[in-house]
Design a binder for these strands. Structure first.
Lengths: 180, 180
DNA sequence: CATGTTTGTAAGTGTGCACTCACAAACATT
DNA sequence: AATGTTTGTGAGTGCACACTTACAAACATG
């Protein structure tokens, strides 16, 4: 016994978020996340309820980390108005994009919403994030909606690699998006 | 010989868009699209260069159908200003959402962009759509960007099933989106 | 130190699926 | 009619991978 089960679960979840983010649910073998976490495949299956249970748990961890990052961004901004807080959160989200994992995981999760458990996890995640953004910023519904719309645009920009495309249409889509 | 290879390819592509839209690239066996198209799995592999070739071709068909729908919407609108044309295209896209296939396929394609061929297909698709929207509407870059941002928000709403969620945060995200 | 519990793994098992190949029938061309 | 070409399939092959089981060592507790 080297570690407690709970600590193992945490490190496995980190590995899972990264692995699933890159190759998605179906194309990511459990052996891959087990290897990344430095333990055996069999033990992953003991720690989580199947591959699906692992993915759902990883989704929870993903959205948790997003909320934390947005909170930090808002905190750093101090006492500006709702628009100011939203913009600060936008900047924080842009920093999040640097490591790509959290953003890509969301895309992968959206792609597996034909599995009811995943759909529910995605709803739960966006419930957390959306209610937090709204209450913490105090912004209007329209502003919050816009915040998420451009967040989703960000997902397209990153997955398609549009920052690397010099053509005018791509420049139009990526204009003003904070340094992704 | 019942049909020409080219005609077969077309029906297979329709089946492929639907099948991949629901279950995604990796979770959709080629047998499924073959069955939906009413031919044998082996023949699908003769008609397309592997499962990946089929998926890429389906992506092409998907974006093609999107452009056609947007064009029809714009045509129907007549000679209103750029904003009017954009709104007409938005309505047309909303109708497209009714059949869900084209929208979900885009999400699935974005999730497989770790495969270079798919990433390129997605870029090519959005290049077609974005340049078309911009030139046909004559709208500004900012307006085009906003058009796509809210389009992507639409993807989230549909995949997560947010129209079915009565809670305030979900209402805020779905507000004003044309009847999805 | 004996017994129980938790952490951990090696070595299977079964299945689903991408892709191939040998072969057949429909059609064209001479 | 003979020969070639295109359309089409049934029956495999091999491999990747989700999940299980049997077993072992670390730690706790009496």
């Amino acid at each position: 016994m080297r570690s407690t089960a709970e600590a193992r679960r945490a490190t496995v979840l980190n590995a899972a978020v990264s692995a699933f983010a890159r190759t998605g649910f179906h194309a990511t073998p459990v052996t891959a996340v087990a290897a990344a976490a430095g333990i055996s495949e069999a033990y992953v299956f003991r720690l989580f309820a199947g591959k699906l249970g692992l993915f759902v748990a990883a989704a929870g961890a993903c959205f948790e980390r997003i909320v934390v990052a947005l909170e930090a961004g808002a905190e750093r901004a101090g006492d500006v108005g709702p628009e100011g807080v939203l913009e600060a959160m936008g900047d924080a989200y842009a920093e999040l994009i640097a490591d790509r994992d959290l953003l890509l995981f969301q895309v992968q999760a959206q792609a597996v919403t034909d599995v009811p458990e995943v759909a529910e996890a995605v709803r739960a995640g966006y419930r957390r994030v959306a209610t937090f953004v709204a209450s913490r910023s105090g912004a209007s519904d329209v502003q919050v909606q816009q915040f998420f719309a451009y967040g989703q645009l960000c997902h397209l920009i990153v997955t398609a690699g549009l920052e690397q495309v010099p053509e005018p249409w791509a420049r139009a889509l990526t204009a003003g998006i904070r340094h992704p």
